[in-house]
């Protein structure tokens, strides 16, 4: 039997909002330690990896490893019925289940809703993502990053990200013209979620499709800050921590440098 009880249903709502527009169906791998999801968009340019450890749950039981093939649109419809402060319980048999139950309990205990969603058979190819030493890490406000991606997509369909010792520059150009947004490493880190830290081993200069970045920033409500990790000619990593019990990591393949 697999059963996981989340005190704050709102978190699962936010996770679904973060993945459903990028990956329609996903394999939720559940084992004794965590629930992990890895999925790619249809063009194999972007990938999302979600990890939620057992300690995020008020109650977590996973007698045998089980993989739940989830249709994220169906799951999202169910979670739209949940309030942020509802308790959400996920339940599934652990012998090749063909469905998953979701129970929503209102905070005052007066309302209980239960749903059964059919699981889907998915043959996605999973990718092995090697641990990598990145040339640059940029930690910044997640809201600020979302704003930059949204603003620059008015000017072009791609953003050039260049990191130097002291700052990170986001540039885009198209028939409207050219736009540059430069963030400078914050001298004082008084409020973490408003400061910018650039940790550079060597300069990077890469170009990425803004369409995908604007899908990644749907995870903005999950964390006040976001960390970008970059290396020359390697996929960009955009990471949102889920408290200290997990993360949502997006990977985006760069445009080919001429």
């Amino acid at each position: 039997m697999f059963e996981a009880k989340l005190q704050q249903g709102g978190l699962l709502k936010k996770i679904l909002e973060s993945v459903k527009d990028l990956v329609v169906d996903g394999l939720w791998d559940c084992d004794g330690a965590a629930i992990t999801l890895q999925g790619m968009d249809s063009s194999h340019v972007a990938l999302v990896e979600m990890l939620l450890r057992a300690e995020a749950f008020e109650h977590y039981r996973c007698d045998r490893n089980v993989t739940l093939g989830m249709n994220h649109n169906h799951l999202s419809k169910i979670l739209k019925c949940a309030n942020n402060d509802d308790i959400v319980i996920l339940k599934a048999a652990d012998q090749n289940p063909d469905s998953c139950s979701l129970i929503l309990e209102s905070k005052n205990g007066e309302k209980t809703s239960d749903f059964v969603v059919s699981l889907v058979r998915i043959d996605t190819d999973q990718l092995g993502i090697p641990e990598t030493e990145y040339s640059a890490h940029v930690k910044m406000s997640s809201g600020e990053f979302q704003r930059i991606c949204r603003d620059l997509s008015q000017f072009g369909d791609a953003v050039q990200i260049t990191c130097s010792k002291q700052d990170v520059k986001f540039s885009s150009s198209g028939e409207t013209g050219k736009a540059n947004i430069t963030l400078t490493h914050s001298a004082t880190v008084d409020k973490e979620e408003e400061s910018v830290t650039v940790d550079l081993k060597e300069p990077v200069d890469l170009t990425f499709a803004l369409r995908f970045l604007n899908l990644f920033t749907k995870a903005t409500p999950i964390s006040d800050t976001v960390t970008l990790s970059l290396s020359q000619e390697a996929p960009l990593v955009v990471e949102y921590k889920i408290g200290d019990s997990g993360h949502i990591r997006y990977f985006l393949a760069p445009k080919i440098q001429e």
Partner: peptide, 14 residues
């Protein structure tokens, strides 16, 4: 517009 890499160019299938 520049052409686009795919993730399989960087990550191996499991």
């Amino acid at each position: 517009t520049k052409s686009q890499h795919q993730l399989e160019n960087f990550f191996t299938r499991k």
